Amino acid sequence: MTAESDQSPSRRAQLIEASIQLLEEVGPEALRARTVATKIGASTMAVYTHFGGMNELLEAVAAEAFARFGAAVTVPDTDDPVADFFVAGNAYCAYALANPQRYRLMFGLVSPQTTRPAATSLDRPPTESSTDATSFNQMMHVVERMVEAGRIRPDPIADIAGRLWSLVHGVVLLEMAGYLGREGRAFTNILGPATMDLLVGMGDERTLLEQSRARAAERLAAHAPDTW
């Protein structure tokens, strides 16, 4: 493999994709410069040419994972924002459980880890260049619409988003670790009811929630099993 081939612009995308594949197929221990480069038939120097080192490559992998995550959780608006939330939540869980190592890397839960701190937080909205901007903005958007529709009380949008995000993220991680019982139980017996209870506690009516959940199930039925 020549140095010129290693410097090809297409190598950068190939290295990111190879890293994603190795991460899911073998685990984070596979993310070494030589292993990643070998997977695409390049020399180790390709990693340093395009990224400067493994930390920078891992940051690029996390950025790509967030981009795909953002696309997965972005759902079209309907006249029922709570149903939209359930559909987006389903997509969130489906992405995380289908790509567990990728999800852990995104949130700094695997080793090797990226050295970059979280691009955004509930008190620091994302910039246009933030790697997690799409997923973060989608979460804030659907919460804001639920408030505007009068379905839940008008607490600060970021605080509501944080409560819902913490619930979903926590259940996903426990499900990944196998602590929530047989497959599917985490969502039908735990996350779904807990989300309903939280939204009722914030002012929604349970009958309206059941209707929204049913609408979401109808939308999901043609694409994937209803995990809620």
Rank of each mutant, 00 (worst) to 15 (best):
F187K: 13
N189E: 14
H141L: 15
P126T: 02
N189V: 11
L173A: 09
S121M: 05
R163E: 08
T120N: 03
T134I: 12
V147A: 05
S212E: 05
G192W: 14
V143N: 03
E218C: 06
S135M: 05
L209D: 00
M140V: 11
E205C: 10
G170K: 14
R116I: 07
T188R: 15
H223I: 15
T120S: 04
R145V: 00
A161Y: 08
I152Q: 09
A222G: 07
A119L: 00
T115V: 14
I190A: 00
T227G: 06
G181D: 05
A222F: 11
A186R: 11
N137F: 00
D123P: 08
G178Q: 07
A214M: 10
V200G: 02
I160R: 07
F136H: 02
L199P: 07
G192D: 12
F136Q: 00
F136C: 00
R145Y: 00
T131E: 00
L167R: 11
T127L: 11
D132H: 03
R151M: 10
D159G: 09
M196S: 11
A118Q: 11
L208P: 01
P125T: 05
A216N: 05
D132G: 01
G162V: 09
A158M: 14
N137V: 04
D123H: 12
A119G: 00
L167H: 08
D197C: 08
I160A: 02
A216G: 05
A186P: 07
F187W: 15
L198I: 01
L167W: 06
A149E: 03
L174V: 06
V172A: 02
G201H: 10
R151V: 11
E175Y: 04
S212M: 07
I157P: 02
A158H: 13
E175Q: 12
P193V: 03
M202H: 01
G150Q: 12
Q138T: 08
R219W: 03
V143M: 06
V143S: 04
V143K: 04
